[in-house]
Design a protein around this nucleic acid. Structure first.
Lengths: 233, 233
DNA sequence: AACTGTGAATGACTTCACAGCC
DNA sequence: GGCTGTGAAGTCATTCACAGTT
C-alpha cells in the first residue's frame, strides 16, 4: 500500500549539483513518523516528559537504532546520556509532518466505507477536517453525514477549488476510481488516498497511496497457507 | 502498514544448512500478488486469454521486470516469445495465496469501521467470508449486521474456536486493541489485521498487518508540506 | 522477432557498533 | 554509566541486460 508507480525518483537536474541542499528523508522513515507521533502524544498526555529511544521504540514497535536514525533526519533533538524531551520531540515531528494547520480533506464516495471514514473521529484528532463528501447517487446527494451535506460528484472540481482541499480520499467502487482520480488531479490536488481496489495512475508529482482491504487479507492468507499448506507445489 | 515488529527473521538453525529447501518468496513480492490476481481476474472476465509482462505490469502499476521476477518465484508459467496464459496464471496466483477455499474471518468491533467492513462486498468476492462480528457494547450485541448477529466480545475465544476462524480483523478503539489481540492469539489465530491506531505486539509466528487511516493521511501531509513548506528548519 | 526467466549490478533500508556527550 | 548520533557493514529489493525459448 504504497505508491505503486514504477517512477524511479528522477535525479535532480539542478545546475549546482555540488551542494545537495535537499536533505530529504527516506520514504521508509517518513512512513514511521506517524507512529512516533502517536506514541509521543500518548506519553505527553500521560504527563511523561522524557523518554529514551529504547522506550519509544518499544512502544512504536520498532528497533531503537531505527528510531534514532529516523529521528536524526529531523536534526538532533535528544540529549546524550538522557534521552528525548517528549514535548519538544512531539512538536518537532508534528511540524515535520506538516500538521501545524488543520488540513481540509474531501471524501469521494459516500457508501459503506466513505460513510465510515466521514464519521471516523480519528481524523479530527490527528490534524484533518472533512470539509466535503461527494457521491454519484442522487439518493445520497443532499443528505447529511457527519455534519457535512453530501454533494454531487459532478461538482467535484468546483468543491475542491472552493474549499481549498489539500487531500482527497477516494472511496468509490473500483470502476469509477480512475475517472474520479483524473478529475481530482485536474483540479490541482496532489495528495490522494485511494481505497478502491484498483491501481490508479497519476502524473509525476502527485503523491498517491493505496489501501486495499481485500489485498491485506490475501497477504495474510498467503502466510496462513505457507504454514499449514504444502511448501508450494 | 506492515508487520512493525523488529523481528530479524531468524536464520534457520537447521542441521543441514547446505541445502536450502525453503524456497520462500520475498515479502515484497507477496505483497504485490493480490494486485496481480486482481488484474488477471479482470482480464479473464473480459475474455482475454493471453498477456505479456508488459501489459500485466502496466495494469498492475509496476515495472515489467519486477512482475516477471515476482512471478518467477511461483515457477515458470509464461511462454517465451509469447507471454502468459491468463487463466493458468490466475489459478496459479490464487493457489499461491491460499485462496482455494473460502477463509472464515471474524471482525472485532462493530462501530463505524467494523460495520463498514462487514458490509464490504469485496470480501466475499475475494475469497473470504465474514462468519462473526463481535462488540463490547450491550446495545449492539444481538443486533444483526450484514446477515451476522453481533456477539459479545467476551465470547471471542469461544467463537474463534467454534467457527474455526482463520483471520481476525481488529476494528476496536485503540485502547482495547492489545487486549483483544492477546485473546485472539491465545485462541490460536495466527493472522491478524489491525485497524486500531496502535502498534500491537504479537509473539513470533503470528502474522500481523496494520492499517491506520490517520497515519496514511499524515504521510501524505508530509509530502504536501515538503512541496509548499520550507525545506525543514 | 517477441518475450520470458534470471544472474549480476545497483540502490534502498536496516542493523551494528562505537565515538562523543551528558 | 547511560544514551544519542552516525559512519560502516550487512541485508533486502529493484532494475538492468541478455541468454534462452518459441
Amino acid at each position: 500500500m504504497t505508491a505503486p508507480q514504477p517512477e524511479p525518483r528522477p535525479a535532480v537536474p539542478g545546475l549546482d549539483d555540488v551542494v545537495e541542499i535537499r536533505r530529504s528523508m527516506p520514504q521508509a522513515s517518513v512512513e514511521r513518523l506517524p507512529g512516533y507521533l502517536r506514541v509521543l502524544t500518548e506519553l505527553s498526555s500521560h504527563g511523561v516528559t522524557s523518554a529514551s529511544s529504547q522506550q519509544l521504540a518499544e512502544l512504536a514497535g520498532v528497533g531503537p537504532a531505527q528510531l534514532r536514525k529516523d529521528l536524526s533526519h529531523l536534526g538532533s533533538h535528544g540529549r546524550r546520556g538522557v534521552g528525548y524531551d517528549v514535548d519538544t520531540l512531539r512538536e518537532r515531528v508534528q511540524t515535520a509532518l506538516g500538521l501545524v494547520v488543520e488540513l481540509p480533506v474531501a471524501i469521494v464516495g459516500a457508501g459503506n466505507l466513505g460513510h465510515a471514514l466521514a464519521n471516523y473521529s480519528g481524523f479530527g484528532a490527528r490534524g484533518f477536517t472533512v470539509v466535503a463528501l461527494l457521491d454519484a447517487s442522487p439518493a445520497l446527494v443532499g443528505t447529511e453525514v457527519a455534519g457535512v451535506v453530501v454533494e454531487d460528484v459532478a461538482r467535484l472540481a468546483e468543491v475542491v477549488r472552493d474549499l481549498e482541499v489539500a487531500i482527497v480520499v477516494i472511496a468509490t467502487p473500483g470502476d469509477q476510481a480512475q475517472r474520479v482520480c483524473d478529475v481530482v488531479v485536474g483540479a490541482g490536488v496532489r495528495e490522494i488516498l485511494n481505497f478502491a481496489p484498483r491501481a490508479l495512475h497519476v502524473p509525476e508529482g502527485v503523491e498517491l497511496r493505496s489501501v486495499d482491504l481485500g489485498s491485506e487479507l490475501q497477504i495474510l492468507a498467503f502466510h496462513s497457507r505457507e504454514r499449514s499448506g504444502r511448501p508450494q507445489v
